[in-house]
């Protein structure tokens, strides 16, 4: 056996020992009946309230109704993330959380950017299009 093979074997053995040492199942939490039921009941409540409010005609202030409905949706998304998708900062050494944070950042930029820019275009350009001043016919 040459020295390089011996080295290779040694490293391989070390790595295997390492792999077995920190083996935590498959790195994922599968939850329990209890956690699924908790998530389910919370989701039912967080779905029933906004549907109830809107079906009953909503509050006097449309803005308040919209804010409550959107707020409930955000809370419910978090509930799903925790109880159904078992998100935590530990799985895959934190990379799933990292990917999620990155996605949320891009998502906020895409959504707020599109809505903001397009809203401005709609309100500032379309109605003020003055054809006479531009000499584009009557």
């Amino acid at each position: 056996m040459t020295s390089i093979e011996a080295q290779g074997d040694k490293h391989r053995a070390e790595r295997q020992a390492e792999a077995h040492g920190d083996q935590h199942d498959d790195g994922h939490d599968h939850g329990s009946v209890r956690s699924y039921l908790t998530g389910f009941i919370l989701s039912v409540i967080l779905t029933a309230i906004p549907f109830g409010i809107v079906m009953a005609g909503g509050f006097d202030s449309r803005f308040l109704t919209a804010a409550v409905v959107v707020g409930m949706a955000i809370v419910q998304i978090l509930v799903h993330m925790v109880y159904f998708l078992h998100m935590n900062t530990r799985s895959d050494e934190g990379w799933t959380m990292m990917a999620l944070i990155f996605t949320v950042v891009i998502l906020v930029i895409v959504l707020s950017g599109s809505l903001w820019v397009m809203y401005n275009m709609n309100t500032n350009m379309m109605p003020q299009m003055n054809h006479e001043a531009l000499g584009l016919g009557s």
């Binding site: 919209a66 409905v69 959107v70």
Partner: peptide, 20 residues
């Protein structure tokens, strides 16, 4: 579960906010 999360966004932003 991810599809259910997307559906939360759909029923909130498309249906509920549309009906307010």
């Amino acid at each position: 579960h991810f599809l259910d999360v997307i559906w939360i966004g759909v029923f909130t932003f498309v249906y509920l906010l549309g009906m307010i």
